[in-house]
């Protein structure tokens, strides 16, 4: 039987209360929502927090809505809710694509968007999806709040910009006309982590790529982004040749490592092929 070590448990009902509890328990406290990454780590004693602050009842962080030209997603939104949201599907099909292949339906009932981003697992899908659409994140602390691009949020594997006494509260995605998006991943079996995955958001100006965002998962791309491929594609014709070349560049610049899921060269091949496919699909969607 796997049993976590001892910890104090507190349940908060509001953001201010969470921040007060984080201040009270100090840097060895951890926020828990879905717990589907943290609790397994605690069971294996890879994580031994002094206190858990349960935010499952902080309902003020559970919303999906459009405000102005931004889609706002509260940190406590469950994967299942993001998958089921018509407004998300309308503006950003990339999230529907990604959520369909994140874990399984029962885990998606529990796991949260904020938790996924803060866990910062290099194989986690939403980080690349949010990077592709150039989301910003909102972090609350005792002094107020700050925002930063999701492309600057992750500072390394399992590390983010969220500091002691801070809480990720919201993800904002800019809604821009003339574009669409897509995500695709290759995994070994249903619900598994990806060998590799790619997401793309593409904006067209006639037959030209006006702007593009490309996210890569599990292949060692810095900040989950294929920056060189984006740079190449911007201003080029939105056609097969450009998408194939962008895939080749994405594969060249990522840095996958061999593990039990597959060898590095195979993952690199997948990064390129999946980049090309999601660019193609995003362009098809943008044209219809």
């Amino acid at each position: 039987m796997q049993v976590p070590s001892h910890f104090e448990y507190e349940r908060a009902t509001g953001v201010e209360e969470v921040l007060a509890l984080l201040a009270k328990y100090g840097p060895e406290a951890r926020v828990v929502a879905g717990g589907h990454s943290l609790l397994p780590m605690m069971k294996l004693r890879l994580a031994t927090p002094d206190a858990l602050i349960d935010i499952n009842d902080v309902s003020e962080l559970s919303y999906i809505r459009v405000e102005g030209d931004e889609l706002l997603i509260g940190a406590l939104v469950r994967h299942a809710e993001l998958l089921a949201s018509p407004v998300v599907a309308e503006h950003f099909p990339i999230f529907r694509d990604a959520e369909r292949v994140i874990a399984d339906p029962i885990v998606r009932n529990r796991g949260t968007i904020g938790g996924s981003l803060c866990q910062a697992d290099p194989s986690e899908d939403l980080s690349a999806a949010f990077a592709a659409v150039r989301a910003t994140v909102v972090i609350r602390n005792a002094d107020g709040s700050r925002t930063l691009p999701v492309r600057e949020f992750h500072t390394g594997p399992y590390e983010t910009e969220v500091g002691d006494g801070e809480l990720l509260t919201e993800v904002r995605v800019p809604i821009r006309p003339g574009g669409s998006s897509a995500y695709e991943k290759v995994d070994r079996r249903a619900g598994d982590w990806p060998l590799a995955a790619a997401g793309a958001a593409l904006w067209l100006d006639g037959g030209t790529v006006a702007d593009v965002g490309i996210g890569l998962t599990a292949v060692g791309a810095k900040h989950f982004v294929a920056a060189e491929a984006e740079e190449y594609l911007r201003g080029r014709p939105a056609d097969e040749d450009s998408f194939a070349e962008a895939g080749r560049i994405a594969a060249e610049h990522c840095d996958p490592v061999a593990d039990q899921r597959g060898p590095a060269d195979y993952k690199r091949h997948l990064a390129g092929e999946l980049t090309t496919r999601v660019l193609r699909r995003a362009a098809e969607r943008a044209r219809t």
Binding site: M1, Y9, R11, N109, R110
Partner: peptide
């Protein structure tokens, strides 16, 4: 499995199925 993979521990918490090996009893308070 004790790792939220196998799903044999699935129960409904406030009407929604969850894997109970990855939920604390205190969370069900």
């Amino acid at each position: 499995c004790d790792t939220s993979n196998c799903g044999v521990c699935t129960v409904c918490l406030d009407g929604t199925p969850v894997k109970s090996c990855t939920v604390l009893a205190v969370m069900a308070d």
